[in-house]
Design a protein around this nucleic acid. Structure first.
Lengths: 347, 347
DNA sequence: GTGAAAGCGCTAACAC
DNA sequence: GTGTTAGCGCTTTCAC
């Protein structure tokens, strides 16, 4: 019952011309090389028969599938869907579809998935993973496959990357806390095998120097995952250490949320006693009390930008026209989880 | 610089056999028809050269692309990512990749996207949209393309569908409210052009009958979108009508969240004065106070089930082996937003 | 058990 | 301006 598709051959038979003529008539650029009358007759027949081009066949011939691969750690992480919509918003109108794969931040899975995408002949890959280094994607790029990375860069490679200005985000946030009078500021760092975790810790250290604040390694707790449980654990560790602090700058929102919860468990009020800040500005944040002060990143734009650069690569634009580095601005969003420094936690 | 791929021909040249022999040696089922020695020599050469099959070419020949299409309304809606992971969890190990498209619940976009998927030769489509009817997907199915729908059924079609037992969810929730002593129970209904909105309203009406509660049309407010703003507006309308109620059963979590917020604006405490319930049990719900009592649906399982049924269809299983209807169980999750009925709101 | 040959649907040289 | 031809990389029928 699987109905057979209408092919160029069917239209050729119907209109009495050769397949190649049909092919040309239906190709917007080649169409001008065909008598208008014939072209429109062909077009009419195609419409009447309900012709749909077989992109598989075209792809085999042209080596362009009009498909791109998008690699992300995990689609259930709320920061990625907006990025995907951003990518789609530029690629889809141009006729591209995307194959999205989840790496779960596992190295071997990641390189397997690169192969999966290449086997399917994707015209390019947008790689929004968070692993710090990744040979397979670099190899693909070196072999000539258009690749751009999002959120991180691959060292020693010619792969264009789009990142958020995390340094600025962390620095502005630290400045915000300093301006509120905080001096003993803890940092709840993310996993150090993820680029975001590592970058933000480095940014925190640099920002402290910039702002003439003392960097206190003993006030840094490192999470093993970017989730609420680890945020809570970080606070517990900090509290258990007996150190004193009036603010906690967290490497992402979920750590911050866990931190606030754990502080509450210990009878410590945020923001009255301890200020807490996040990073990412994930959805639904304004429904959670206290509303979190955080760093907003431009997820949708990041996706759009990545797609735009990938297009340039796929179009074979001149190397000098392709931006190797794009740093997107971030902004801090001050809500309710930060307040002027009050009495120190514990004595 | 785009490196040329290794093809069967290269391996054939390398090993001194014919391409068709190489093809057979590399095909797990055909391999047995080849002398083991030759087969392993070919395998070795393939590995050495780093051969990767070109699925585009194979697809053109076999009419199977090992790619499925997945249509959802909007990936940024948190209920969909888990469904996608569920789908992926069964399809990916079998070598399938998926092309995900967002319909934005627009009819014309939806039918265009069906074509986009078919042009790419997907082997099947999982359609998790929420529009009530949709001719294009029905047509595709009628023409023999394997299709299954998630969350809704297409009337008068032979398309297998997977739905959640929403009737039971609404009924259990209403029972929960009744058991807490509530009698004047409002319903914040979802958009009536979406199947979930319509189904849940019908379920509410039926459940009222089942539980011997009066169904009060004047206590039903209908949202235009499934979001917090509309939840708030629904409550405003209900309050403005001067009607009295002690509980609000909402058609989804976001409406419920907006409702609770708006009640608070009016100085009405949830759950002390009015109980509010949601539907979906979306992520992060346990971070929002009061923690919402809601209906949990099995998103991951729904995806897995849809993928499994699609596989049966794609494998050409006998019709009687393919479940036309799968109703997944739901469970109510009682948290903090419901409490015994107290004094009525307003007098 | 292996080779030869055809062909999936399309595009792109080249011919006329 | 249109037809002819070849071929993308693979699978599969048919020989031997």
């Amino acid at each position: 019952m699987r109905q057979k598709r209408i092919t160029l051959k069917d239209i050729a038979r119907e209109t009495g011309v050769h397949v190649s003529t049909v092919s040309r008539a239906l190709d917007p650029v080649e169409r001008k090389s065909i008598t208008e009358e014939v072209a429109s007759r062909i077009q009419a027949a195609a419409d009447a028969l309900g012709y749909r081009p077989n992109r598989i066949a075209a792809g085999l011939r042209t080596n362009r599938t009009m498909t791109v691969g998008v690699m992300i750690p995990d689609i259930t992480n709320v920061i990625f869907p907006p990025i995907l919509r951003g990518i789609e918003s530029v690629l889809e109108p141009l006729g591209y579809a995307s194959i999205i794969v989840n790496t779960d931040s596992e190295r071997d899975r990641e390189s397997r998935l690169v192969d999966v995408l290449r086997d399917r002949g994707v015209d390019g890959i947008i790689h929004a993973a968070v692993l710090r280094s990744d040979p397979s994607i670099a190899r693909a790029a070196a072999e000539g496959l258009p690749v751009v990375t999002l959120n991180r860069m691959v060292e020693n490679s010619q792969i264009p990357y789009i990142i958020n200005d995390e340094d600025a985000g962390i620095c502005e946030m630290l400045r915000h806390l300093r301006d509120l009078g905080h001096r003993d500021i803890a940092h709840l760092a993310g996993p150090q095998d993820l680029s975001t975790g590592q970058l933000r810790l480095a940014a925190f250290r640099n920002a402290a120097a910039t702002l003439s604040l003392e960097f206190r390694p003993d006030l840094v707790a490192t999470a093993r995952r970017f989730d609420e449980q680890e945020g809570a654990r970080g606070i517990r560790d900090l509290l258990a250490s007996g150190r004193t602090f009036t603010a906690v700058l967290c490497a992402n929102d979920r750590l911050a949320l866990g931190a606030i919860d754990e502080l509450r468990e210990h009878g410590i009020d945020c923001p009255r006693e301890v200020s807490v800040t996040g990073f990412n500005d994930m959805p639904f944040l304004d429904l959670i009390r206290p509303r979190l002060t955080t760093v907003r990143i431009l997820q949708h734009s990041a996706g759009q930008t990545a797609a735009t650069v990938l297009l340039q690569l796929m179009n074979g634009d001149k190397a000098e026209d392709i931006p190797m580095e794009t740093i997107l601005p971030v902004e801090i969003v001050v809500r309710e989880s930060t307040a002027p420094a009050g009495s120190l936690v514990r004595s």
